[in-house]
């Protein structure tokens, strides 16, 4: 066990935890934040991605030791933001979510992309979401949704 200090959803935490415990298990089982999903458990599907200092990472492969000093945002907190509202509206409009299992990861990956590249080309959207699998939509609707979000978001994602 070790003491790990980090920020989870804007809350400063100091937790006593095994350093090898997966961030995903900590989020879901210890913090009961079940918006973050486990799909493949091996970094391929992206259902588990969370923001680490604003960048999308696969929480199924991140040991708790590595979150020390970092800021983690999960979908359960991100849903309270303006950026989420815009993404939610765009995904609804374009039919970018069907069964919904991949959607938390898709939204987080979209946020990671748009916050570093507010007006991406279609190719950049495809590359930005390449680590997130969806078995329902066939992707086109999701790509369109991110494009729409970047449009209706105006300068929401432009660097402040």
């Amino acid at each position: 066990m070790a003491k790990i200090k980090f920020t989870l959803n804007h809350k400063k935490l100091e937790v006593e935890v095994d350093p090898s415990r997966r961030l995903l298990d900590f989020i879901r089982e210890d913090m009961h934040l079940s918006g973050t999903k486990e799909g493949c458990g091996e970094g391929s599907c992206g259902a588990c991605v969370v923001l680490m200092d604003g960048y999308s990472v696969n929480s199924c492969l991140i040991p708790m030791a590595n979150v020390e000093g970092h800021e983690i945002i999960t979908i359960d907190e991100f849903k309270n933001t303006k950026e989420f509202e815009v993404l939610y509206a765009a995904f609804s409009e374009e039919g970018g979510s069907q069964c919904g299992f991949c959607t938390p990861g898709m939204i987080i990956a979209s946020q990671s992309l748009l916050s570093h590249n507010p007006h991406p080309s279609e190719e950049e959207i495809r590359a930005g979401l390449a680590g997130n699998l969806c078995r329902c939509t066939g992707y086109q609707a999701i790509i369109q949704a991110v494009k729409l979000a970047s449009e209706i978001g105006g300068n929401l994602w432009d660097k402040k």
């Binding site: 970094g43 960048y55 999308s56 930005g128 390449a130």
Partner: peptide, 12 residues
């Protein structure tokens, strides 16, 4: 690197 893994994985 552009073709390695995915952007999510490349972040760590």
């Amino acid at each position: 690197l552009k073709e390695l893994a995915s952007v999510n994985i490349r972040h760590f």
